[in-house]
């Protein structure tokens, strides 16, 4: 098993965090993981992306030119990475910010109205967790409960109060793909 995931969006949408939570959860579940950010001027407000690898074996190259999974939080991300997704891959996209259809017809597509759901929860910043919940549920790459565990480990101190709303957002995302 080797999951090759690219997560991309605007700086500030929390794409790096999504990737780190996934990698951390994979590690807790005993898998080999690697997380690679795009770095440089992008992280100061432009588009940002990260690569996550979760594997049952040792990870060789951490470079992913053809991801099996693309999580696109905004349209520029879809534009940039759609052509690279491998055949029979999966694109999970933020329907609230992406109007256009996916051009590829050899990949699966899940559209999540992430910002709309997050706004209903009263915090637009958890849109990333809605999408992550949907992807985790759909792929089964890690258990949703493991992501909860990671949240509890990483959101400490003053951030502790954010655990519940993040869990709520993850659950709502997971429910969409269940239907």
């Amino acid at each position: 098993m080797l999951e090759r995931i690219i997560i991309s969006g605007f700086g500030g949408q929390g794409v790096m965090l999504m990737g780190r939570l996934l990698a951390y959860a994979g590690m807790i579940e005993g898998k080999k993981v690697a997380w690679m950010p795009s770095y440089g001027p992008e992280m100061r407000g432009g588009t940002a992306n990260c690569t996550v690898l979760i594997s049952s074996n040792e990870i060789g190259s951490p470079i992913v030119s053809h991801p099996k999974i693309l999580i696109a939080m905004n349209q520029p991300s879809l534009d940039k990475f759609e052509p690279n997704v491998s055949e029979n891959g999966l694109i999970v996209l933020n329907d609230s910010l992406i109007e256009r259809e996916v051009k590829r017809n050899d990949v699966k597509v899940i559209r999540i109205p992430a910002d709309d759901i997050a706004n209903k929860l009263g915090n637009s910043r958890v849109a990333n967790m809605v999408v992550l919940g949907a992807y985790v549920k759909k792929s089964g790459v890690v258990k949703l409960e493991t992501i909860f565990k990671v949240l509890e480990k990483t959101l400490t101190g003053p951030k502790q109060k954010l655990i519940d709303i993040n869990k709520e957002a993850l659950k709502l995302g997971a429910e969409i793909v269940k239907e």
């Binding site: 780190r20 080999k32 993981v33 690697a34 997380w35 690679m36 950010p37 770095y39 990870i59 951490p62």
Partner: peptide, 10 residues
């Protein structure tokens, strides 16, 4: 190199 410095692993 920049890759290994930026990368997260267990």
């Amino acid at each position: 190199d920049g890759l290994i410095g930026q990368m997260m692993e267990a």
